[in-house]
Computed example of a mutant assay.
Amino acid sequence: MDFDWDDAKAFLLTAETGSLTAAAKQLRTSQPTIGRRVAALEESLGIVLFERSKNSLFLTPQGERIFQALQGMEQVANDTILVAKGATESLPGVVTIASSQIDAVFRLPALIAELKKLEPTLQIKLEVSNDSADLIHRNADIAIRNFRPTEENLIIRKLGDAQVSLFGTPQLCTSLNLQKKTIPTFPIIGFIGTDYLTQVLIDGGIAKDQINYVCLSDFQLTHIELAKRGLGLAILPTNLGKEIPELECALPEEHSVYDYSTWLVCHSELRHNRRIRFVYEFLAERLARTV
């Protein structure tokens, strides 16, 4: 019996994420392609791997056993790649860094320019997303995360703590202050999934009836540009918001909507890779100054 490893990888990610669409996103392909690959694996193995309902996929008992077996094979494959990377003793080559949109625009460009001056043979590849970088499946060598990772086999280093506040034009912030005699309504430029953000704002001391979402986008640079135009308030790290001349903090200096920690993350097997270790140590030292 033989099967295509790419079909198996599509199956593994579908089983892990519970969705053809989510698996397609991680593999940077289309949902129909993932569906065809899963179907091809089912045909080659002669079994049904998933039970399909209208909106969900569930592993069959046979699919569960295949999933466990393939996970072991995937770990062997990943370990082989990591051993090969760990044997690299020269700096020339590619290092992939996963970061958020904010870090990719405001923190990393200057650091990458400095890094290239120090070591011109390095090629830096940026994976920009506000989703968590997947180091286990080799989507990145190094990741900057705004929460403490819990996965095993990762090297993690805390870079520092930060606060988040609301930022708008001076005119908008003044108008909100004038409303202090009454209960102010905050025009929020938010993310498309508002349930989590609403709870964050409530936990940060803003009542639910004070929240008015004026525009929703998952692209944070749009938040900033809309805030500059006076449409509403962008939710930004406090130290970053203060550096944008067109904006000012809408809340008192000591008020933080929420606090978070920033972590630099790398797979433990890559600690022997001179190139990746060089970039990791450089970022750890420089980013700790800016968080």
Rank of each mutant, 00 (worst) to 15 (best):
E64Y: 06
F67P: 06
L70Y: 04
Q71K: 06
G72Q: 07
G72F: 09
G72W: 06
M73V: 15
E74Y: 07
E74I: 04
Q75L: 15
D79E: 15
L82E: 14
V83I: 15
V83L: 15
A84M: 14
K85Y: 15
K85D: 14
G86E: 07
G86T: 11
A87C: 14
E89R: 10
L91W: 02
P92A: 04
V95F: 14
T96E: 10
I97G: 03
S99H: 12
S99D: 06
S100H: 02
D103S: 03
D103I: 01
D103T: 00
V105Y: 00
R107G: 00
R107V: 03
R107K: 13
L108R: 04
P109E: 07
A110W: 10
L111I: 04
L115Q: 02
K116N: 06
E119T: 05
P120F: 01
T121M: 05
L122M: 07
L122N: 04
I124Y: 06
K125D: 12
K125L: 15
E127A: 13
S132P: 03
S132A: 06
A133D: 00
D134T: 08
L135F: 07
I136D: 08
H137T: 11
N139Y: 14
I142M: 12
A143F: 05
I144R: 00
R145V: 09
N146C: 00
F147L: 09
F147S: 09
T150W: 10
E152V: 10
N153T: 08
R157F: 14
K158N: 09
K158R: 12
K158A: 11
L159H: 03
G160T: 10
G160F: 13
Q163V: 04
V164P: 02
L166T: 05
